[in-house]
Design a protein around this nucleic acid. Structure first.
Lengths: 200, 200, 200, 200
DNA sequence: GATGAATGAGCGTTCATTCAT
DNA sequence: GATGAATGAACGCTCATTCAT
């Protein structure tokens, strides 16, 4: 690849990065194309060298890989309860690691998917849902959970719980540290709900 | 109250109503002040007689009561499981009845408490939390649940689940109808989680 | 009408006037909405109080009445040859009165009717064509011209001649004063072409 | 000529050709430099190797010969009426063959001679005028037309008619097909106007 | 000579907000 | 209190033009 091509890729990368940063902080509708180009030190016109419309940079951002926790967990050989509790922990750690303000902004933006015009938000939700479902399906296959386990409903239950915890953390402006209830809630949620379906 | 004052109150009421209607249909960011004033048959300038900024009408809308279910449930004499399931149903029905856009707007504002300097949001969370806790405390008092029931954690669990469901509905832009999983989730969540603590 | 309404009409009138002036001088595509509003001393936004789109002001301009020469000539009782020669003279006087630069700009704009999006230019052409046809039809009715006079073709012949003269004047940058050939051409054109059809 | 020079000429030729094609299809103001370079398969920058400004390619196109009919007609030995009618037909065929957009663009530029500081436009007019005059002079010399034929005025009459037809075609955005009236107009114009001067 | 990334002025349009009436 | 004309900042987007490679 020539130097010019590399430079172009770098410019594009910087645009996406600046875009992701700004959109997650302020929301798609509240930042301008110029905000993005200013943030990455190029001119307004340059944005349109790489994207046909402002929205197109969101496609790019949404297409970035989410975290790979599930893949790792699928390969571990711990029990399903431990796996789910670990997923709970990592999900919330991830949220907390990003910081309260970022999480709040993310929630704000995500709550109105019209800001993400191509269904990227739905993909995120579906991705998380499918990830959990995979974990549970695996456990059913391996005989750890009974065949009649309501895998779909359980996946939704856990996902909505995770988003709910995140949302409440944001909503309380950090007053309710996830760290404090994460363990307790995940034990209540996971152990007790799964207990009926464990074993053959 | 003078006739003029009454007319003014009526104008204000119509503005709020039209605003709620339009926001629920199109989302706050996608309607203009003129849309609202057109919808309620007054002029653009009139809006600013009652609100200093466009956003102020959202505060007004958000401050409207979200639900008053708990009070009623406390007085009923059904079992705790039925009460909680009813609360689940009514909470989500209420959310759905208000409409997706209103819920999304509410979620957006609520996720960022700095938009509510008077602490109204935390109060909302505290209110819902306390309401559930009251229900559970009552059940413990009446011997329906064991003394060692982790009432605090259970309340949080249920609240985060409810907000999580709402958030996921908003996030999916209505694709995941709460109606579809409400029953299944509430059964999973409530019956199974409570089962260990029921009885004396 | 209230003072405010009057002021508003005045603003609108000034916009149309400034628009007509600027469009005829520089062409629709080469002036901006801001040029118009600057020229009439109001702000850019004011334009959109009166017109939904930039093009809409052209509709307004095109709808302004063309000159009323034909109507007058229809009522006079001179012969058809005199009437047509008078029309020739007035048409070209009108062109010359507006000035070479304006005529050149008008030609430039009119040559590309896409600058006048609603067919206003065709209307102008059709208007001039119909006007002449009316004069000739009247002469046929009154027995001044024979029944088999090719009225349509004659009308087109005269119209294209008039536009051609105007265009050549513009094209020559004023070197060929219409005044110099107007008489000669109109005599050649009108007397000789009509001679075959005059009388019973 | 070196291979490089040849390739350069070829590139330039392709640019002019693509430009003419596109302008004839969409009009100068509605195509971009990139449209032209895309159409001829080179890059945007290459355009500026050959032209300093976008408009310069129009000059190039305009300077292309519009027709060379007169020279041929002078050598034919048909009568003056036939020659003039043939000239009419060929002039308008030529215009139509070039296409409406090209003609419009040509008219636009030609109406404002300041766009051609080298006087090319006046030359075009003078050229066409002189061509017709030569035809008529020849007919006078050969005794086909009388000595007192107003050759100058007739030449102007016919030229203005031709440009007028072209202009009206442009003005009507192609609605008035020259083909429809060409014959009729040329018969009216030429036969009748010349009839007084024919013969000895 | 060819490239195409970068530029930045400019445009059409929207809209929250003000204020004289 | 109600009006609606006026404002002007801001935005998304285009595109002629430049220049380092």
């Amino acid at each position: 690849m020539s130097k010019r091509q590399e430079a172009a890729l770098e410019t594009r990368r910087k645009l996406v990065e600046a875009g992701e940063q700004l959109i997650s902080q302020h929301g798609f509708e509240h930042i301008s194309v110029e905000d993005i180009t200013n943030a990455c030190g190029c001119s307004k016109g340059t944005f349109y060298t790489y994207f046909k419309k402002k929205e197109d940079i969101v496609d790019e951002i949404n297409r970035r890989p989410f975290d790979q926790t599930i893949e790792r967990l699928l390969k571990e050989d711990s029990g399903i309860v431990e796996k789910l509790m670990q997923y709970f922990n990592e999900f919330m750690d991830n949220v907390q690691y990003k910081g309260l303000r970022i999480a709040q902004q993310w929630m704000k933006n995500v709550a109105d998917p019209s800001a993400f015009p191509d269904g990227g938000v739905n993909e995120k939700l579906a991705f998380d849902y499918c990830g959990l479902k995979e974990l549970l399906d695996q456990a059913v296959e391996q005989g750890e959970l009974r065949q009649d386990t309501p895998v779909d409903a359980l996946s939704w239950l856990l996902i909505t719980e995770l988003y709910g915890m995140t949302f409440c953390w944001c909503m309380s402006d950090g007053a309710f540290e996830p760290g404090d209830w994460k363990d307790q809630l995940s034990k209540l949620q996971i152990k007790q709900v799964l207990s009926d379906y464990i074993g053959g």
